[in-house]
Design a binder for these strands. Structure first.
Length: 290
DNA sequence: CGATTAACCTGGAAGC
DNA sequence: TGCTTCCAGGTTAATC
């Protein structure tokens, strides 16, 4: 269930092992994930030094020293693990180790920032994840990236932007926020949670929402993402960070997966509803979301 | 244009 | 103990 906060958590966990380090050995265990790996993928990774690890929307971007960007999308169940990472019992629980039958990429790193040689494994039971190597100067025109909207935690995302993006739109708000061309990185959980915090019904036509409400919405989106990142994202079943730690934000869901429960908004207490739209569950409080 | 369905895959939970 | 059905973080194409 990697949405923006989960991908960001993985990025932060992976960075100390990747950035500044050279890939000593790369192995793929099959020819494809959701899509075929690029030609000679493993060979092209071997010997490369990772100069930076960034995130765009739900993609991880590793900038290599040969001018290529190595892209990973985690799909639904993709997981990067640092093998042998010390598990430090802290605020969060630990996930089951991934099933080795679904480990598809193995990287042996030379020394990273921490000075340790580590093994990194990509595991993905459903194989909705995907990877590619994109030349840096072709990145902006690449089909996965050229149409993406602004980062919701970036400076270009604010109420006036939403007003412009939604102008004349008859699609419902929830669908509009899931559209990566409008804003990049939100998924089902965080859209539903942000709409609840903003007090707006998911079925509202996007173009019909007032400016003050869009202000509330833009703030709610930022807040929910920042809170989620601070606790390592949300774990429904598969997701875990690179050291096996589960997220903590699932304990703070106000509507997601809470059908029939009472709304926690002060003085509300309405019943949380669930409906399916476009094949995905939507949760909201019929009393305080208008 | 917008809404819905299916497709890509596996595994876990629930129902009978 | 089976077996079947439904469901899940994402993305994209086809169809109505």
């Amino acid at each position: 269930m990697p949405e923006l906060p989960e991908v960001e958590t993985v990025r932060r966990g992976l960075a100390p092992h990747l950035v500044g380090a050279r890939i000593a050995k790369a192995q793929t265990k099959r020819a494809d994930l959701r899509f075929p790996f690029p030609k000679r993928f493993a060979e092209r990774l071997e010997g490369r030094r990772v100069e930076a690890l960034r995130r765009r929307a739900k993609y991880l971007l590793a900038e290599l020293d040969d001018g290529y960007i190595w892209v990973t999308h985690l799909g639904m169940t993709g997981r990067w693990s640092v093998i042998g990472a010390k598990r430090q019992p802290g605020d969060f629980y630990y996930a089951e180790p991934p099933n080795p039958a679904h480990t598809h990429v193995v990287l042996d790193m030379e020394a990273g920032r921490k000075g340790e040689a580590t093994r990194l494994e990509f595991n993905d039971p459903r194989r909705f994840g995907y990877m590619d190597l994109i030349a840096r100067d072709a990145f902006d025109s690449h089909p996965w990236f050229k149409g993406l909207g602004p980062e919701p935690l970036g400076n270009e995302f604010h109420a006036p932007y939403l007003a412009e993006a939604f102008a004349g739109k008859k699609a419902n708000l929830k669908a509009a926020l899931l559209d990566q061309r409008v804003v990049a990185g939100l998924g089902n959980i965080y859209v539903v949670e942000a709409l609840h915090r903003a007090g707006i019904a998911p079925a509202r036509a996007a173009g019909s929402v007032s400016k003050p409400r869009l202000e509330k919405l833009s703030v709610a989106i930022r807040e929910v993402l920042e809170e989620a990142i601070a606790v390592g994202g949300s774990t429904l079943s598969d997701y875990a960070s690179v050291d096996g730690a589960q997220g903590g934000f699932q304990q703070r869901f106000r509507v997601y997966d809470r059908e029939g429960a009472r709304c926690v908004t002060p003085k509300c207490g309405g019943a949380i509803k669930r409906a399916v739209h476009g094949g995905r569950s939507t949760f909201w409080c019929a009393k305080c979301q208008r």
